[in-house]
């Protein structure tokens, strides 16, 4: 596969003596939508947190947008401006308004002027359909709205890659749909996306490939159709039977 956006080469990682990632090899192409799933504790969050250096790895190599993450702060700083991330707990900045949350990084990292940044923020607030909430504080918004703001905040950096770490897991069920819809729209625009999620419907609709992890290993990588209809490994079959019930 050419034009790789993210390339994991034989990566292993330990938390103390516990090995969370075992010899991971995975290439993700530009524009590819990848869903990572698996039981809790399987290392899926850790895997995507490597991509923007929120976690470090002990063994192997990792290339993001052609740049090697080698522990140097220069490469890390650059990669973080190209990789957006959405967290399970939203992590909006509670002391700033929605608009201030959005323009913060464009102002201080991209060094835009305030009017440029505001214009950009308005554009993405429209895109996630909450442009009327710009002056409010995060606490005044519902969970679903907060998560959409978090997506818009990441998009304001105009990243090449978007990482989603269980973006709907902390939401009330009736708010899951609105967040997934925003993510579907984003996928249609051709963004390179890596999503850790349990939303199998989303995975089926959007993913180019689904990665199944268990106990720190990549157990199976498949297109959605094959993933759901003809899973090869017994572990994946067991996992699917559990979540379908």
């Amino acid at each position: 596969m050419k034009n790789n956006m993210i390339e994991f080469i034989d990566i292993s990682k330990w938390f103390g003596s516990f090995q969370v990632l075992k010899n991971i090899n995975l290439q993700l192409a530009k524009g590819e939508r990848t869903v990572v799933c698996g039981p809790s504790g399987s290392g899926k969050s850790t895997l995507i947190r490597l991509v923007n250096g929120l976690e470090e790895f002990e063994q192997g190599r990792l290339l993001v947008d052609g740049i090697e993450l080698d522990g140097g702060s220069k490469s890390l700083e650059h990669i973080r401006t190209e990789v957006g991330m959405v967290f399970q707990q939203f992590n909006l900045f509670p002391h700033l308004t929605i608009l201030q949350n959005l323009i913060l990084a464009p102002l201080h990292v991209r060094k835009m002027t305030k009017s440029q940044a505001t214009e950009l923020a308005q554009f993405y607030l429209d895109k996630v359909r909450i442009s009327d909430q710009a002056a409010k504080y995060p606490i005044e918004l519902s969970g679903g709205q907060q998560q959409r703001v978090a997506i818009a905040r990441a998009l304001c950096m105009r990243p090449q890659i978007m990482l989603f770490d269980e973006p709907t897991s902390a939401l009330d069920p009736e708010m899951v749909g609105e967040v997934l819809q925003v993510m579907v729209d984003l996928a249609k625009d051709g963004m390179t996306m890596v999503c850790v999620t349990h939303e199998m419907g989303f995975a089926r609709e959007v993913a180019d490939r689904i990665v199944f992890m268990d106990a720190g290993e990549l157990v199976e990588i498949a297109k959605p159709k094959d993933f759901f209809e003809s899973p090869k490994s017994p572990r994946l079959r067991e996992f699917l039977s559990q979540i379908i019930n």
Partner: peptide, 21 residues
Amino acid sequence: SHGQDEAAMALGLTYFQRMRL
């Protein structure tokens, strides 16, 4: 919460920007 720092890191803010802002 540590999530605040992580979110700020993910946006590419430097240490001093994260602390100050």
